[in-house]
Design a protein around this nucleic acid. Structure first.
Lengths: 198, 198
DNA sequence: CGTTGCATGTAAGGTGTTACATGATTAC
DNA sequence: GTAATCATGTAACACCTTACATGCAACG
């Protein structure tokens, strides 16, 4: 059962290893819209960012070229205004296949968190207590903003038909940020307690 | 009080930009022990990993060389057994200064999360429901293991005198993972609901 | 009439990974 | 005796960022 390679379109000549960012870009296109690189960047910032960071703009274009070379997306030029054109990208059937296979067969790496604020707290023995406290407070303020953005993202996902999964992830993101805010609050309390006991 | 630059040792000739990993390595050494590169890697895996990922072994040695070139750490060879030697590193006063300055003045970047499992859920429209469910379940299992490791890390921090800050961060990590487990559970429920409604 | 948004890249460089290599010692 | 631990790297390279460049359109 595992020997017969009877694929029709999938001339599965073993795709080269594709970086995480390319899969994410392809994933954005898997929702069926034709998007410019600029659009994809905005989707990244507004959605992906909450659970999978957001690549630099130039990186988006690099990955789009890679994906097109592999036949996983195709591009076409459309009018932008009277004068200029823009390039919009769409996923190909081959691209959908590849993404599906990747999703099902490639084990997800362990999630990675890179939290500079916590690194600073961890090194609290070197810090002035008031400065450290301020940094947590700043962090908390940033989380409040992020929470609003995440709630926005959830609302938009809820409004789209057939966006059940993005809505699920968005609500995960909202609850996650709420949790972070609680943790920041209790860390402020602990920090004050530490500062008093010296 | 803030004007008088009366530093004795700090010939502060504007250090070159130092990557995050080097600061983390220097931070590990700021607890005052003399450690080998191997030790530092283990500390990374056991502690830093919960809030700041863990660099590859080879990267540790690269950063140690960088830090030594800048005079922020110094190394010396000690006997490992009858035959062999090993190199242990210690932070220098200049290193402590630099780390302190970095901590106080460089704004922490926004925390970044790279969560491959969630990316897969986000692309749930492409997945077989049972496979997707399995991936969350696997993720949950991994979290259970991580929780145990984080609790270990917290206990060790609690046991050390003068490790109040690492203990704080360790307890943050424990609670964070507990929150993740709850989120995974509720995602499993949502996923099942979605699969039934199709 | 200046700023923001739209739109697309190039060039340079550095951070960080993977794969590989080595070898003695200790534990099972 | 075979595996895991300790210990230290090199080489190659891929990923990703930063800085820079360009220019029209629309908004205030």
């Amino acid at each position: 059962m595992s020997g017969g390679n009877t694929d029709l379109q999938a001339t599965n000549v073993a795709l080269p290893k594709i970086p995480a960012t390319a899969w994410a870009v392809l994933g954005i296109l898997s929702f069926g819209r034709e998007l410019t690189g600029y659009d994809i960047k905005n989707w990244s910032d507004a959605i992906l960012h909450f659970f999978y960071w957001s690549p630099a703009t130039s990186q988006i274009y690099t990955e789009l070229r890679r994906l097109e070379d592999l036949g996983l997306v195709r591009s076409r030029a459309v009018a932008r205004d009277e004068v200029r054109e823009k390039t919009i990208y769409a996923i190909t059937p081959l691209g959908t296949d590849a993404l599906r296979t990747w999703q099902a067969t490639v084990d997800a790496e362990a999630p990675v968190l890179k939290h500079g604020v916590l690194l600073r707290v961890w090194l609290g023995h070197l810090a002035e207590p008031t400065r450290l406290r301020q940094q947590i407070a700043d962090h908390r303020a940033r989380l409040i903003e992020e929470l609003a953005a995440a709630e926005d993202s959830r609302q938009q996902a809820d409004a789209q038909p057939d966006w059940a999964y993005p809505a699920l992830v968005a609500s995960w993101a909202v609850r996650r940020i709420e949790g972070e805010i609680e943790l920041a609050d209790s860390m402020l309390i602990d920090l004050d307690r530490l500062a008093q006991n010296r």
